[in-house]
C-alpha cells in the first residue's frame, strides 16, 4: 500500500491502523459462492460479467447495476410525462382557431348618431316634394279604381270628361 509516502502523525497512527483493518474487513465481506455458475469469487463474477463488453464491437456502457434500477425508470416516467404534455400543447397550438388578423371595428357612438341624422335628412328631402301631392295622388288612385271596376266604356268616359271641361 502506498501510504508511507507521507508520515502519519504518531498520535494518529493507531486510528489509521484501525481504519486500515476496517478496510480489509470490508474487502473480505465480498460473497464467496462456491458452485455459482456466475463465479465463486468476486473477481470471477466481475470478470465473467464484463468480458463480453471487452469483445463487443459496440461497447456497452453498463450492463448491470444501478443504471437499470427502478429509480431510473422513475426519471424516465417524468421525462415521458413532460414529453406528452409538450406534445399535447403543441397539438393544441397548431389546431386552435386562428386569431383574427384585423381588429373588429368597434361601435362609435358619435359616428352612429351622425349617420342617423344623415338618413333622416335624406328621408325628409324625399318626402317634401311628395307631401303636397298626397291628396292628388289619392284622388287619382280613386278615379283609377272606379274606372277599372265600372262598366262604362272608354268613349263614355271621354265624353263625360269633355262635358266636365265644357268643351
Amino acid at each position: 500500500m502506498k501510504t508511507n509516502e507521507h508520515e502519519i502523525d504518531a498520535a494518529l497512527q493507531e486510528t489509521d491502523a484501525i481504519a486500515r483493518r476496517a478496510a480489509r474487513l470490508d474487502a473480505s465481506s465480498a460473497r464467496e459462492l462456491p458452485g455459482n455458475p456466475a463465479g465463486a469469487t468476486l473477481e470471477d463474477r466481475i470478470f465473467g460479467a464484463t468480458r463480453d463488453v471487452l469483445n463487443s464491437s459496440f461497447p456497452v456502457v453498463a450492463r448491470i447495476g444501478p443504471g437499470v434500477r427502478p429509480t431510473h425508470w422513475g426519471v424516465w416516467r417524468i421525462a415521458a410525462a413532460f414529453a406528452i404534455v409538450a406534445g399535447l400543447g403543441g397539438l393544441y397550438v397548431s389546431l386552435r382557431p386562428a386569431a383574427p388578423t384585423t381588429p373588429i371595428a368597434r361601435a362609435d357612438g358619435s359616428k352612429a348618431a351622425a349617420d342617423m341624422e344623415l338618413v333622416l335628412a335624406a328621408v325628409s328631402l324625399l318626402d317634401e316634394p311628395l307631401s303636397g301631392n298626397f291628396d292628388q295622388l289619392a284622388e287619382d288612385a280613386a278615379r283609377l279604381h272606379e274606372l277599372v271596376t265600372s262598366d262604362r266604356t272608354f268613349s263614355t268616359e271621354i265624353a263625360e270628361e269633355k262635358t266636365r271641361q265644357g268643351v
Binding site: 456497452v60 450492463r63 448491470i64
Partner: peptide
C-alpha cells in the same frame, strides 16, 4: 463494482 468495471471495459 461490476458496473464500474463494465464502464471501464467499454
Amino acid at each position: 463494482a461490476q458496473s464500474v468495471f463494465a464502464t471501464l471495459a467499454a
